[in-house]
Nucleic acid binder design. Structure first.
Length: 156
DNA sequence: GCCAACGTTGGC
DNA sequence: GCCAACGTTGGC
């Protein structure tokens, strides 16, 4: 069982829009970064839990929890010339890019802002704090529990 | 909208 | 394989 932080821009796909979907892929198709791809392809597993993070807004924050329901599989948007995520180097045999499916779990009673996270010395090793632009990040078990507590809950 | 960080590309 | 140029991300 692993913990992750997935970033999305609410303008692209918000946590609220996840609510009524049994499974979905939209926020994280189009991941075109090799480090994030490696996590999606090799490490993200069914049952893993996800911190859903909204970026590129006035108050970036972890807003809710999600669960992985399908492990990495080829991101077919890379094969579609009409997709903005088209990659001419990708093929059916060598898809290059991967995505996963997640389901809605619950919102945090209180959102945990990037500022909150930066102020907590116990969270100083998170890629988020180190100004990484990585969109799929591993989260340690300690970090997971701390952020849930900051968000006003203890269990997913 | 600016711009720093940083990943990717491509010429050599 | 180096590294400058370029593009993208994302906080502010």
């Amino acid at each position: 069982m692993n913990y992750w932080l997935f970033k999305t821009e609410p303008g692209c796909f918000s946590f609220d829009s996840l609510k009524n979907r049994p499974g979905m892929t939209e926020p994280w198709d189009g991941v075109r970064n090799f480090q994030a791809r490696n996590f999606l392809r090799d490490s993200v597993s069914v049952g893993d839990l996800v911190l859903f993070y909204h970026s590129n807004i006035p108050e970036p924050a972890v807003v809710g929890l999600a669960e992985v329901v399908r492990a990495g599989y080829p991101d077919i948007t890379a094969l579609n010339p009409n997709s903005e995520h088209f990659d001419p180097k990708a093929s059916v045999d060598k898809p290059i890019w991967y995505m996963v499916d997640v389901r809605y779990v619950k919102p945090l009673p209180r959102i945990v802002t990037l500022e909150n996270i930066k102020q907590n010395l116990l969270l100083g090793d998170m890629p988020l704090v180190k100004r990484s632009r990585l969109s799929i990040q591993p989260v340690t078990e300690d970090e997971w529990h701390i952020i849930l507590a900051m968000g006003g809950t203890t269990i997913p």
